[in-house]
Simulated assay, not measured.
Amino acid sequence: MEVYPYGSNKRPYALPFEIPEKMQQLQNWSNQARISLHPVQYATDLHQKFVTIHPFRDGNGRTARLLMNLVLTENGYPVINVNPSKNARDKYMQALASAESPENNSQPFRDLIADYVEKELNNRIDILQLNEKYTKEAEESFKESKINWDKLEQDARAKLKAQKSTSNLKAKD
């Protein structure tokens, strides 16, 4: 069945009889692009190209985002989640529509996904910095508690020694 891009009724995505050929073209492109493009651009372009073919009746966007995240994680980048708010979804759909327009301007979509990747990387850096801070605090706390435990142990040994000495003196009497 014909499926149309967001906000358009002029040209559907790939027509049903075009899908096998377009999927083969996507696979051929992918084999070359994974080597030649930056991983974030490759992931973004793969998403955009797949969703433009629209091979399934439902789930094309989810599948495209899954493919994109697979590429990102294979290359050491974090999984990204496209914000589900109405405003963020509208930006996402408009950026995709720009890439699917006759001008084929993929840059807004690339920029949008790159911003998501950068934000997630910054979140990870913040988490790692917090972890480092808490680790240092725990080490300091442990050193302090170890000093206290060492002092308690010394005091306990001294008391035990004093009690033994007192017991030995009483036993001699």
Rank of each mutant, 00 (worst) to 15 (best):
L66P: 00
N122L: 04
T63F: 04
A14H: 06
V51K: 03
K86L: 13
A88M: 13
R65T: 01
H47G: 01
A158E: 11
R11Y: 08
L169Y: 12
I53N: 05
R157E: 15
K49L: 09
L130W: 09
L72V: 00
R157Y: 15
Y116C: 03
A99N: 01
Q94T: 13
T166G: 11
L46A: 01
E118D: 03
N28P: 02
G59F: 11
L15F: 14
A162R: 15
L96V: 13
M1N: 08
A171Q: 07
I127H: 00
A97K: 08
A97E: 13
N168D: 14
I147W: 02
K143M: 11
Q41S: 09
I35M: 12
E144Q: 14
Y92T: 10
P102G: 02
P5Y: 11
R110D: 02
E132C: 00
V40C: 00
L160S: 12
N148Q: 15
L26H: 03
E120F: 03
S36K: 08
Y13S: 06
N168M: 07
A156T: 11
G61N: 11
K161S: 15
Q154C: 05
P108E: 11
Q32G: 01
E137V: 15
L130S: 01
Y116A: 02
K164Y: 12
F109W: 06
S8P: 03
A64D: 04
Q41C: 04
I113S: 02
H54Y: 08
A33P: 04
T44I: 04
E153G: 10
D90Y: 14
Y116G: 01
N104K: 12
V79R: 05
S106E: 09
S167F: 07
R34A: 01
E137A: 10
A97S: 15
D155Q: 10
R65A: 02
L26D: 05
N28F: 02
E132Y: 13
Q32I: 15
Q154T: 15
M23G: 03
E103M: 03
Q163P: 04
F109Q: 05
P108H: 08
Y116N: 04
T166L: 13
P108A: 09
P16F: 09
E137N: 13
N131H: 10
A158F: 04
N131Y: 09
Q41I: 12
Q94D: 15
L128I: 11
N31A: 01
N168R: 10
D150C: 06
S141Y: 14
Y42R: 01
A97N: 11
F56L: 06
T63Y: 06
A138R: 15
M1T: 12
Y13E: 04
F109Y: 09
I127L: 06
Q32A: 06
Q48C: 09
M23Y: 05
K91V: 07
V51A: 04
R124F: 01
E2C: 06
L121T: 01
S8V: 03
K146N: 12
A156M: 06
E120D: 03
V71T: 00
R89G: 13
K170D: 14
Y116S: 02
N28G: 02
L160E: 14
L70H: 06
I80H: 01
I19Y: 07
N168K: 10
T135M: 05
A99E: 02
M23E: 07
L128E: 03
